[in-house]
Simulated scan of single mutants.
Amino acid sequence: MKPQQNYPQIITDETFQETVQHGLENFPFCYYLEDVWDFDFHCIDWHWHHDLEFIYVTHGTAICFADGQSIQLPQDFGMFINSGVLHRYEAASSVLLPNIVFSPTLLAEENSLLYEKYIAPILSSHTPFQIFSPEIPWQKKILDLLKQIFSLYETMEKNEKKELYIIQIVWQIWELLFDCLPLTIQLSETKNSRNAQARLQIMMQYIHDHYQSPLTLEEIASSALIGKSSALQIFQSGIHLSPVAYLIQYRLDCAAHLLHTTEKSISLIAEETGFSSTGYFCRKFKQRYNISPGEYRKKH
């Protein structure tokens, strides 16, 4: 992905796996307090990780894309993102999003009884995410427990028993998930979902690698060894865009990066980012950013 200056970014590898280690090797847990609006293009872009993620919205409304769905999370709502799920957050204005990210092994070692009996069933279930509403009692309990963890990080000194308290609270959260989530393992459905996500990642990466060249839907689909109709279906269910629409969006993101990090002419930037003409590039750019490329350059 093309990083931009002066904004926090999600750093991923070629499979969209986040490359940042969350927490310490001997305590794989991390707390973040983030405003989605501060991120590049006001979104925390597509990524996934083996870690588990819990978020809480304290201000504004977050839009999360996960498992082919678009989810609006208003203030005081929260969400659980399961391990390995490709997701993205967007915001139309400032959205304060305290969140925790931790490895499943924080709770128990793999192959241990605790892991196999209480952790693996959730990881293996067809539960890519779970929304938490303050109106539902068991979900409100989880939201209250998350707020306890956030409070620990905001008030406790380094020499206090923060890690011990965190483990206790996280286990309470996990027990509520274990008791209340439908954990019937649908192996064929889960396998199909993971295969679709893998193909989506392959095609997205192909676009990232070849966006400067003329690309067709057939070429994008062929990169994942599937047909055009399957590519359309996977993109639409995965990120709610067609492959060509995602290609144009990515080209525009790269062009925006060049506009405020280089002095190249607008026509040269249009050519370098794969647009067939400067006029077409300018029209698409204004549709996406509501300002012209020249105005964008001045603003940044």
Rank of each mutant, 00 (worst) to 15 (best):
M1Q: 00
P3L: 03
I10A: 11
N26Q: 11
E34H: 07
D38R: 08
F39V: 02
D40E: 14
C43P: 02
C43V: 10
W48I: 09
H50V: 09
E53V: 12
T58I: 10
H59D: 11
G60Q: 10
T61P: 04
Q69L: 08
I71G: 04
L73T: 04
D76K: 05
F77G: 01
F80H: 08
N82P: 06
S83A: 14
V85S: 09
H87Y: 10
Y89C: 02
Y89S: 00
E90T: 11
A92D: 13
S93Q: 15
V95H: 03
L97Y: 05
I100Q: 01
T105H: 06
L106M: 13
A108R: 01
A108H: 08
E109W: 09
E110Y: 07
F129E: 03
F129A: 03
S133E: 07
K140T: 14
Q148Y: 10
I149Y: 05
S151R: 14
E160I: 09
K161F: 14
K162M: 15
L164C: 08
Y165P: 02
W174P: 02
F178K: 08
P182D: 04
S188G: 05
S188R: 07
E189I: 14
R194H: 14
N195L: 15
Q197P: 07
R199F: 01
Q205M: 07
Q205P: 00
H210E: 12
P214A: 01
L215E: 00
I220K: 03
I226G: 00
L232F: 08
I239N: 02
P243M: 00
V244D: 03
A245I: 10
A245T: 11
A245V: 09
I248E: 08
Q249K: 13
C254R: 14
A256E: 13
E272N: 12
E272A: 07
E272F: 09
T273A: 02
F275D: 00
K284I: 01
K286E: 14
N290H: 15
N290M: 12
G294K: 13
